[in-house]
Amino acid sequence: MRNQKISDLVYLALFLTIIVVMSQVPWLGFIPLGFTTATIIHIPVIIAAIYFGKKMGVYTGFIFGGVSLLTAYLRPTNVFDLFFQNPIISILPRIAFGFVTVIIYNSLKFINFEYLRTSITAFLSTIMHTVLVIGTLILIYYNETKTFVNADKQTEEFTITFALIGLVVLSALGEAIASTLIVPPIISAIRAANKKEGNKDLFKD
């Protein structure tokens, strides 16, 4: 019997490696969408959550949050990075995101077709990711974002709010579509490799 703790630790380390590599290689973690970019670095979290379950999903979410916190301090590139310097915004929603992904995946048990189940999970959890992060951001920085949230019509603030919401919705949709397309093939490839090589000595050369 293998020690589950060691294997969890090593898998987490490898997920951390993948997340760091994806956030460092620009064309691997970001898809340009004209005015904004869709960030798809959350995909390892979805994969960990679907493949390993609740515990690993939450831990990988924590790692993802930690990486984005560090990136926000060491090399911030856009406006959101200024908000991600707050650990409450960068880490907490990501832990919840890992948890929510598992809940979505488990509640879709009635879908027998695995490919469809993973793609729906990927779509919904990516939308949930955006909702959680933006929601926490508005909750924490309510005073700063108040002018945007409660902006009257026909003021300059309203125009900017409209543009910001448009950008967020555009990139969220791009992320959701991208992860819907990307996650299921990876999951099924991992499962296929697992099955072919036998469960006993998993992934042996």
Partner: peptide
């Protein structure tokens, strides 16, 4: 493109983790 890169990356990493 991303799928064709990520699948080998994940499988290599999983194998290495084992």
């Amino acid at each position: 493109q991303i799928i064709s890169l990520l699948i080998p990356m994940f499988i290599i990493s999983f194998r290495r983790a084992e």
